[in-house]
Design a protein around this nucleic acid. Structure first.
Length: 704
RNA sequence: GGGCGGGUAGCUCAGGGGCAGAGCGUCUCGUUUACACCGAGAAGGUCAGAGGUUCAAAUCCUCUCCCGCCCACCA
């Protein structure tokens, strides 16, 4: 199929003509299996979202891993690397909701069941798009084992894990203020919130003091939450306001008595240094309330409207209520001043709606002991985080961790194995995978209905390593040797995998975490679709081919430094491919023109032979050293220099005209160079191998 | 606010106490049978600024200025 004719006739190499064919040729050889006498090298993929489309981050991350995979294969390891995708709760639900919106529908019009059917349809149709795009990167993944986080087996793992946590007393249900998106109608974790800078006002409100003609001035951006105030607080170091401590302020409108307390979370420099404590609608205030035993009074509901505790303002939207309250306070002469300020508004990462903090009954996972497991695993180097500078934020996060809110009130996701009593409501519950046979303690009946709450997506992906690697068939594949990840999911994903693995498997899920560089724009800004600063890797593949893209990315990559993306190295890569192509054309011509017998008589090595052999040896040594520390850029640059300048410009030139070089050395150097190039520019080197050498995958060859 | 990193040739970056480097770009020359997606060569730098340590600083220390990334968050 790939004959010498191709090599002879093409003075230029066109990657677009061959790369797809080469990939098809490889696919059967990507199958993962256990091999006797070979040590495994296991790579854990970061499953992309089913809504995703290939971006530079994926491209870099997986190019690094594929290069490593091929390199390790050629070093003699049995490499295992399985593909998978994540159902990505809110992200996916939002995509389908957007689709519905075009038809003038909301998910509530369809109802839960029909909506979920629709999401599954969407998943069947588009869910594998990103994996198809992964193939375009040339990744050596075993496509016969695609895993999905809502596969039957996977779902079973997640349920089992939750049940196990529950039995050990680590799961609890509690009323607690959570971040809530009134549009998505779901609670959100801190990590799903985006702070957007907006112009707003800082209102200085007067709270009269009990039995005094004086008043206290409190600054707030959200006057409507005052109706839920249960205290005022000042910082213990704040001498100016210290005299207020112990006094009682009176809440306007509702006449509630608010004690003035001390708490270190208060910033004495903000506003007047006095904080109004609203435990139901602020996470910081809730923390203060816990410390001081303050009551929690909710005044805003899940639709961002004022509820029955809001007195005369009940039923108003929170913004309208804010206006009304300010108006009324003005009438009462209880506003000192209003200042314009820039502040960061918490918004829903997915839809941009302003977040409301409201109390909600949610399921929590106690983090104290689990955090310790994760902490110790890295402290003892059971898990190596590289570059090491990421250890510090890792430890800090674990030290200051809060309990993890596991439940979500969206529709798309894995439903929790929780049952509520039909008669008595959600205060009576059972945690069980199947419908419980027990009776409700209250009504003594057995009318259980399953909850509609789903798990936080990250709870499910935290189990990814053993859910995909530790199946009956492939038990030996846990733990993995390496996982690569972007910086921003260190806590969201990596940390949670570590304690999950330690808790359930009693063993770390991977030995090494490589936090790879972030791909920035040429101006050094973040690449982002919404900002329009992203560059589509597929376009670049269409323009230069996959090998060139891989070359360009790796060329720019350093293990420690973020990369400002530049297209020129990709162009350079394409030129390099042509150089390689022509070098082997030349080799083929020379090889054909000399008979083996004639040359094998000459066993003495020329100075050129010695020089190139020495250079090859040094290059290999250098490359090996750099790959071990993930310096793929430096490794590639060394190979480039060796091949282009030392091999082509100097050594090959000595084969023109009469040559006293050894043909054995020539053969050896050309084959070893091809192998050395392969992990970096796989398609081209494979093509040459098929033409000039064997009908075999090049990655099955071992380095000499 | 906390943490991390960067500022070296026109551009992208390497180097990390001992003669300032690479690739791309620019300029000059070269159409000899692998490749013009090429070859030979050249120009181009106060290593952000100031101070210090040292026989010696781009490199180590202190400060200043500028740029960025991640996390937290302003009531």
């Amino acid at each position: 199929m790939f004959t010498k004719k191709i090599l002879k006739e093409n003075t230029k190499y066109n990657p677009l003509e061959f790369e797809e064919k080469i990939y098809q040729y490889w696919e059967p050889y990507f199958k993962a299996k256990n091999i006797k006498d070979k040590k495994n090298f296991i790579i854990l993929i970061a499953p992309p979202n089913i809504t995703g489309s290939l971006h530079m981050g994926h491209s870099l991350e997986n190019t690094i891993l594929d290069t490593l995979a091929r390199y390790q294969k050629m070093k003699g390891f049995n490499v295992i690397w399985l593909p998978g995708i994540d159902h990505a709760g809110i992200a996916t639900q939002n995509v389908v909701e957007k689709e519905l919106k075009k038809e003038g529908l909301t998910r509530f019009d369809l109802g839960r069941e029909k909506f979920l059917k629709r999401v599954w349809q969407w998943k069947e149709r588009y869910g594998n798009t990103i994996l198809e795009q992964f193939k375009k990167l040339g990744l050596s993944l075993d496509w016969s084992r695609i895993r999905f986080t809502l596969d039957k087996k996977y779902v079973a793992w997640v349920e089992k894990a939750f049940l196990e946590y529950y039995k050990k007393g680590l799961v609890y249900r509690s009323l607690r203020p959570v971040n809530f998106c009134p549009r998505c109608q779901t609670s959100l974790s801190d990590l799903e919130i985006e702070y957007r800078e907006r112009e707003g006002f800082l209102y200085y409100l007067k709270y009269p003091l009990k039995n005094e003609s004086n008043y206290v001035v409190v600054a707030t951006t959200r006057p409507e939450t005052m109706l839920g105030d249960t205290a005022l607080a000042v910082n213990p170091k704040d001498e100016q306001n210290f005299e207020l401590v112990g006094k009682i302020a009176i809440l306007p409108f509702l006449q509630r008595e608010l004690p003035v307390i001390l708490d270190q979370r208060v910033d004495p420099k903000f506003g007047t240094g006095i904080l109004k404590v609203t435990p139901a609608h602020s996470l910081v205030d809730y923390e203060i309330a816990l410390r001081h035993g303050l009551p929690m009074i909710s005044v805003i509901d899940e639709n961002a409207k004022m509820n029955q505790n809001a007195g005369e303002f009940q039923g108003l939207d929170y913004l309208t209520a804010r206006q009304k309250i300010v108006e009324r306070l003005r009438e009462l002469n209880l506003i000192e001043k209003i200042e314009k300020i820039q502040h960061n508004l918490p918004t829903c990462e997915r839809c941009g709606t302003e977040i409301q903090v409201i109390p909600s009954k949610e399921w929590f996972l106690k983090m104290k002991d689990l955090a310790k497991l994760a902490y110790v695993a890295v402290k003892r180097n059971e898990v190596e985080i590289y570059p090491v500078k990421f250890k510090k934020p890792y430890f800090e996060w674990l030290k200051n961790i809060y309990d993890w809110c596991l439940s979500r009130k969206i529709w798309w996701g894995q439903v929790m194995p929780v049952w509520y009593c039909r008669n008595c409501g959600d205060d009576e519950y059972q945690v069980s995978i199947n419908k419980p046979k027990t009776k409700c303690k209250q009504c003594k009946k057995s009318k259980w209905i399953r909850t509609e709450e789903v798990f936080d997506t990250w709870f499910s992906s935290a189990l990814w390593p053993f859910a995909i690697l530790y199946t009956s068939q492939e038990k030996k594949w846990y733990p993995a040797d390496i996982v690569a990840s972007a910086r921003e999911i260190l806590h969201l994903w990596i940390t949670r995998m570590i304690f999950s693995g330690k808790f359930f498997m009693k063993k770390e899920p991977f030995k090494t975490v490589f936090i790879h560089p972030t791909v920035l724009t040429k101006e050094g800004k973040r690449m982002s679709k919404s900002l329009g600063t992203g560059i589509d890797p597929l376009e670049l593949i269409g323009k230069y081919g996959t090998d060139a893209l891989r070359f360009g990315l790796l060329w720019q990559m350093s293990a420690h430094q973020d990369l400002r993306f530049d297209e020129r190295p990709i162009e350079q890569g394409k030129k390099f491919l042509n150089k390689i192509w022509n070098a082997y054309r030349f080799y083929s011509i020379i090889r054909d023109s000399r008979s083996k017998i004639q040359d094998s008589r000459d066993k003495k090595l020329s100075s050129y032979d010695k020089k190139i052999l020495n250079s090859l040896k040094n290059t290999k040594k250098f490359v090996d050293k750099k790959i071990q520390v993930y310096e793929f850029g430096l490794a590639l640059k060394r190979i480039y220099k060796f091949f282009w300048h030392e091999l082509c410009d100097d050594y090959l030139e000595t084969w023109k005209g009469k040559s006293k070089n050894s043909i054995q050395v020539f053969d050896y150097v050309m084959l070893e160079s091809l192998k050395l190039l392969h992990p970096f520019v796989p398609h081209l080197t494979q093509l040459i191998y098929l033409i000039l050498y064997k009908q075999k995958p090049l990655f099955a060859e071992k380095f000499d």
